[in-house]
Structures are given as C-alpha cells and as structure tokens.
C-alpha cells in the first residue's frame, strides 16, 4: 500500500474547489477539511453538488480549479494512490448483475491488485453477512443485499477513507437498519468517512461533524455537539433557502 507523502492530520483537504460543466458551475469554491478518523455527514438538497463533490474526491472527474488532496495525495498527480486508499458506496451498487457475489468481489479485488484475493473476498462477504449467498448471481439479490455486497466491494482493499453518496436511497426500513449497523462497525475501525444525504434523519447520530452544501457552497460546517437534533431541521431549511 502506498504511503502518503504529506504528514497531515487531514485525510480530505479541499481548498477553493470549483467544478463546472460547460457554463454551469456546480461547485463554486468548496473548502472542506476532514480529519483522520472523523465521520463527516454532508447534508444538502438535490442539485446542491453532493454527487459531483464525491466524484471529485473519488478521482472520477477532475476539478476545474482549486486544490484537492485525499489522504495527502494530490488529485491531479497521484490518482492511482488515491484510488487505493478510498472506497465508494453509492445508491447504485457498481456491481455486475450477471456475476455471483464471490466473482464480483474477486474481480474488483484483482483490479485493486490484492494478494490472496480469494480469501480476502470470502472474508469481506462474510463481514457483510452474505456468506450463504456467496455463489448466487447478483441479479437475484434484493436491493438491500446488493447494497451490502456493494459495501464488501468498497472495503475489499481495506481503504482508509470511505465515501458514501446517498447510500440510503432505495433501502427499506430493514435494509436501512442493517446498513446503519454496518456503518457504525466501519466507523469503529478508525476509518475516515464522508457521507452525503438529502435526508436529515439519516446519519446524524453517527457523525462527529456535519456540514450543509447548498448551491455549490458549504454553508455550514460544525461539530455535531454544537447541533441540537430538535432544531436541526429548522437550521437546515434556513441555510438551504438563503
């Protein structure tokens, strides 16, 4: 595993991050600093730029301007180093429907360049509680099971950082509960986690710090201890509507 060149306490460091598509500026100067081991939840309505921000952090697209370092690596120069230190879970599973659970995880494990892939794949599948369906085709899985397997895909290379893009979307109550439990497990493993969501009922309990993204800018960034659960909804609405 690559070792970070910068010895910074921040795993995610964005300064003046901008991203435009043609003439439309989706991110208009985002400053975001997330410490190692922190669970950060970013709230924001649809179209605020949450998914674009995640894509930038995941090196799926390049920023138009601004600086971005993920686990100390520069997003413009050291993409493959970043890719080996992050795991991404989205509302889409990013899995092959026609492969079995084990084949999927083994495939992605190979692309991450892991050793002893078969064991590692079995281990993470067990970790997400799918060992009994290991050899079944993903097409036959329910939404909740696909999401669990998606977690296995995201942690197969034991990443230090997890990026979660609206992971609760489409999960039923049972599925959400299981997923929530998995999240708190992941958190206890000292991982840095950034989650985005538009639903203010999700993730508030787990997070150490929260932020609000609105119209391409961070309009709130504070420790969760400063936030009262009861008044957060009003705060969110007032911040988003500005």
């Amino acid at each position: 595993m690559a070792i970070s060149t910068k010895n910074s306490q921040y795993d995610i460091q964005a300064d003046g991050l901008k991203k435009s598509f043609g003439n439309f500026e989706v991110l208009r100067g985002v400053d975001l600093h997330i410490k190692r081991g922190e669970f950060f939840t970013l709230f924001g309505p649809n179209g605020a730029g949450k998914t674009t921000l995640i894509k930038l952090l995941a090196t799926l697209t390049d920023p138009t301007s601004g600086n971005l370092h993920v686990s100390g690596f520069d997003v413009k120069k050291e993409v493959n180093n970043i890719r080996s230190t992050i795991g991404v879970i989205s509302h889409d599973p990013y899995l092959y429907d026609n492969l079995s659970a084990l084949e999927n995880i083994t495939f992605f494990g190979t692309l991450y360049g892991l050793d002893d892939i078969d064991n590692r794949a079995r281990c993470v599948i067990k970790q997400v509680g799918l060992e009994r369906r290991m050899n079944d085709i993903v097409r036959t899985f329910s939404r909740g099971m696909k999401q669990r397997l998606s977690v296995a895909r995201a942690i197969v290379h034991d990443p230090k950082i997890l990026l979660l893009d609206e992971p609760y979307t489409g999960l039923d109550q049972n599925g959400s509960q299981i997923f929530g439990e998995m999240l708190s497990d992941l958190k206890s493993n000292k991982r840095t986690i950034l989650m985005t969501t538009h639903n203010i009922d999700e993730g508030l309990d787990l997070s150490d710090r929260i932020g609000i993204l609105s119209k391409g800018k961070i309009v709130l960034d504070c420790p969760k201890s400063e936030i009262q659960r009861s008044s957060f909804k009003d705060l969110y609405i007032s911040k988003v509507e500005d």
Partner: peptide
C-alpha cells in the same frame, strides 16, 4: 450496455487500474 447496468463500470473506474 452490460457495463452500464448498475453502473458496474464505475466500480471498475474506482480501482487503481490504468
């Protein structure tokens, strides 16, 4: 089109693969 189902291709792009 098979790569696009479930956006599996993004999973592939997330890995450190040239």
């Amino acid at each position: 089109a098979l790569e696009k189902e479930g956006d599996a291709i993004i999973g592939m792009l997330l890995t450190p693969t040239d």
